[in-house]
């Protein structure tokens, strides 16, 4: 099975000198960091800083060209079996939700468990319904994604990722495409998830959420980690000029 059982203080994600280029553009310039099981990390930074690209390399939606990434004891390489193993352990939530429009909300959630985890339909539906309960939209199970609001779609997307019982959840700007009044309902679900002890990596601009929920905030700029600190230090005592500028700009409004 995937990897070995981690000791409590073993990192579940290890990145060593990770580089990535889009053609000639050097997006990731030597990322070295690691994340512990149960850790809740928020990744922020200006647009184009490589933060989304970074978390997308962690389940191989983007390929890194140099360095090593080890997720749950399995190294990410061209080996398709490893990639599929890791994708089963890593859930992902996208900015644009990316729900499957031709499937009902319930089917969106049960597809992975049935096809990948080889559950029976009734087992998968039971899990899906309890997850929809957990994200507070059990009454929308048999509707289609186009029939519910953006905030509800994103909660279905979170339920879909959770249905695979992942060890790690990646969030790629989960609230950026939402109308303001729907951001709270999604953040509430993420807060609840954080309390449950899930390992979470969240790319977001929601600084209030970061301060409240994160164990650790990583600030990306120009493809590198500029600042990596606990929230209190990050907001009250940033070390780098660029971080200070970013914080002053984002906290102004």
């Amino acid at each position: 099975m995937a990897g070995h059982e981690n000791a409590p203080n073993d990192p579940i994600i290890i990145c060593e000198d990770v580089h990535k280029w889009f053609d000639d553009f050097h997006v990731l310039r030597g990322i070295t960091t690691s994340f512990q099981t149960g850790e809740r990390a928020v990744i922020c930074g200006p647009s184009g800083s490589g933060k989304s690209t970074f978390i997308r390399t962690l389940n191989r939606l983007e390929e890194h060209q140099r360095g090593t990434i080890i997720v749950d004891g399995v190294e990410l390489s061209d080996d398709l079996r490893n990639i599929n193993l890791i994708r089963q352990e890593v859930g992902m939530v996208f900015q644009q939700f990316n729900l499957f429009p031709h499937l009902s909300n319930l089917q969106n959630i049960t597809l992975g468990p049935i096809r990948v985890r080889k559950m029976t339909k009734s087992e998968a539906e039971e899990i899906a319904l309890s997850l929809l309960e957990r994200v507070d939209i059990a009454d929308q199970a048999y509707k289609y994604p186009s029939e519910i609001s953006g905030g509800q779609q994103q909660r279905v997307a979170i339920a879909r990722a959770l249905a695979m019982e992942p060890k790690i959840m990646l969030f790629d700007e989960p609230t950026s495409a939402l109308d303001p009044e729907m951001i709270t309902e999604v953040l509430d679900v993420m807060r609840e998830l954080a309390r449950s002890g899930m390992t979470m990596l969240v790319v977001t601009h929601e600084m209030g959420f970061a301060r409240e929920v994160a164990d650790r905030i990583l600030f990306f700029d120009e493809g590198a980690i500029v600042e990596d600190a606990a929230p209190a230090d990050f907001f009250d005592n940033p070390q780098h000029e660029r971080t200070k500028l970013f914080i002053s700009q984002t906290l102004q409004h």
Partner: peptide, 19 residues
Amino acid sequence: GQHEAAQAVGLNYVQTMLF
């Protein structure tokens, strides 16, 4: 995004195309 979401759920190429 549809391909990516399918891959993120763990579907392989054939499953992604088929479903």
